[in-house]
Design a protein around this nucleic acid. Structure first.
Lengths: 157, 157
DNA sequence: CCGAAATAGTTGCGTGTGCATCATTTTGCA
DNA sequence: TGCAAAATGATGCACACGCAACTATTTCGG
């Protein structure tokens, strides 16, 4: 009965998705609290700084940035505006395409990122340890550590 | 140099987290659009119905539900309120502990869930196929399919 | 047995996000 | 060359979320 086979494949995918979502939510929750408490940074804000700092020239266009953090254009606009107000980021128009806007992380932004990184890494490690104790999450946590390294990984979308 | 070893472990975890977050965001985005468009359900709303429908007696206490969907108590209150207004859910006080509130999926709710499930499963499959074409996400997608099945998995936190 | 502490759930408030829309600039087709 | 279509980013708006504060109920110590 092919339908049965198909159903069970769908159920396996749904099961994998539930596990992924549960692990993601727990980690994000832990990171959000820790980064907010100690550095006044949200996970999105940290991500933006991290992504930009990894780029050659420390800059990216808004559109690429949206893709990298998987956020809408409008959310990205305001996220960048917040970070710019705090001096962690700088915006300037694209010389060759005047529709485009470059966002570049400043020296202050890179410094803030490096200050926040230990907090980020420690609470990530702690969240993973806690997740590993839950039988339904442990397998995914383990496989996560075994994932092959992406060498480039910096470029967006 | 032990610090170097520690750094590289932290970087490996961060890399795994970035991959997990990227895959999660893409899948959630796809599910959100599809469920919203075809069934006026958010991913959270679908999750609540799905979790409850999987319980014996189709009910759970608010607190357990918050844990299962990894949302704050206040968010859960309003999420449940929305679904109750649509008749997909029912609330009643815990007889033995009058602080507690049970939430139970109605027959309408289970019907709505079953109508939405194909949409959910199809866009999940589609999102996974797209993700598999991205070299940095493909390994995680593959391992997700190999995750062992949790037999119980229904009970919340 | 009574009152303090803990627990469950709700509500006011501030804020971050997506959608629809808009202005500006570039691209492409005739 | 000229003008419609596409693309980029910003803004008005509605809304879901988390935090803090509140009420109601239960639990626990004296």
């Amino acid at each position: 009965m092919p339908v049965e086979i198909d159903d069970s494949a769908a159920e396996a995918r749904a099961q994998g998705w539930r596990t992924l979502a549960a692990l993601h939510a727990r980690i994000e929750d832990a990171l959000e609290r820790a980064l907010q408490r100690e550095h006044r940074l949200s996970v999105s804000e940290y991500s933006v700084l991290d992504v930009l700092a990894r780029q050659d020239g420390f800059h990216l266009r808004m559109n690429q940035l949206s893709g990298a953090v998987v956020l809408s254009r409008s959310a990205t606009t305001r996220l960048v505006a917040r970070l710019e107000e705090r001096g962690l980021l700088q915006r300037y128009l694209c010389p060759d395409d005047r529709r485009g806007v470059y966002t570049e992380v400043t020296a202050d932004g890179r410094a803030a990122l490096e200050r926040a990184r230990p907090t980020h890494d420690e609470s990530l490690a702690a969240a993973l340890r806690r997740a590993e104790e839950l039988p339904e999450l442990a397998p995914l946590v383990t496989t996560l550590a075994v994932l092959p390294r992406a060498e480039g990984e910096g470029s967006a979308e």
